[in-house]
Simulated scan of single mutants.
Amino acid sequence: MIDTADQLLREWPPGYGGVERVVHELASIWGGTVYSFDVQARSKHEHDALPVGYGRRVLPCSFSMGRMVIPLPSRGLWSMVWSRRPLHGHLPSPGVLLALLLARVVHPRRWVSAHWHSFLEPGPGLEGRMFVVYQSLVLRLLPWFSAVVTTSPVLAQELVRCGCRQQQVQVLPCCLSEEQECQALAIPARRMQQGDPLRLIFIGRLDSYKRLDWLLRSLAALKAPWQLAVLGDGPRRQAFEALSLSLFGPQAPVRFYGRVDEASKLAQLALADLLVLPSDRCNEAFGIVQLEAMAAGIPALAFQRHRSGMGWVAQLPALVWKQTPEALPAVLERLASDRALLSQLGTQSRERYQQLFARQIWMHRLHELLPHSAERKVSGR
Rank of each mutant, 00 (worst) to 15 (best):
Q170H: 12
A285M: 06
Q290T: 08
R85W: 02
L159D: 01
A229Q: 15
R67C: 11
H45T: 14
G309Q: 05
G297M: 03
A220N: 14
S246I: 08
L126T: 13
H367K: 15
F63A: 12
L200Q: 02
L50R: 14
S373W: 15
R359F: 10
G128A: 03
D196R: 13
E121G: 09
R199C: 11
L101N: 02
W78S: 00
Q348G: 02
A224H: 15
E127S: 12
W144I: 09
S28T: 14
L335P: 02
R339P: 05
S244D: 09
A296L: 00
L77I: 08
F357H: 02
I361T: 14
T150G: 11
Q180C: 11
A114P: 02
H90M: 00
E179F: 09
L126G: 04
P92F: 06
L77W: 01
R352W: 02
S308F: 09
S43G: 03
R57D: 10
L356V: 12
R84L: 04
V260N: 02
P250L: 09
Q290I: 11
P92I: 08
A114I: 04
G311A: 11
T4A: 13
V96C: 05
A272N: 08
V289L: 01
M68P: 02
L141P: 03
R165P: 11
A242K: 00
L159M: 10
S208P: 10
I203L: 15
H367Y: 13
P253F: 10
G287T: 07
E241Y: 07
R161V: 11
D38G: 01
S246A: 14
L141S: 00
S146R: 09
L301A: 03
G55C: 11
E20A: 12
R85H: 12
P250C: 08
Q227H: 15
L335A: 00
L342E: 02
D213H: 10
E326N: 12
Q304F: 01
Q135N: 10
Q348Y: 09
M294T: 04
D273V: 11
E178L: 15
Q227P: 00
S62I: 01
I29H: 11
S136L: 08
L341F: 00
C182I: 10
L8N: 03
R281W: 01
Q323F: 11
L275G: 02
D207N: 12
P299V: 05
L200D: 00
W226R: 01
S36W: 04
P94H: 04
A374C: 15
G234V: 07
Y16G: 15
E262R: 15
H364K: 15
L271D: 14
L370K: 07
A302Y: 01
R67S: 08
A295R: 01
E181Q: 15
G309T: 07
S218Y: 01
L341A: 05
A252H: 06
M363E: 12
W82I: 05
V148Y: 01
A252Q: 05
S36T: 06
A358T: 03
G249F: 05
L206C: 10
L274V: 14
M294F: 03
G287D: 05
R259N: 12
P153G: 11
V133G: 09
V276N: 03
A186H: 04
L8W: 03
H117G: 05
G232R: 02
L222V: 09
V96K: 04
G163I: 09
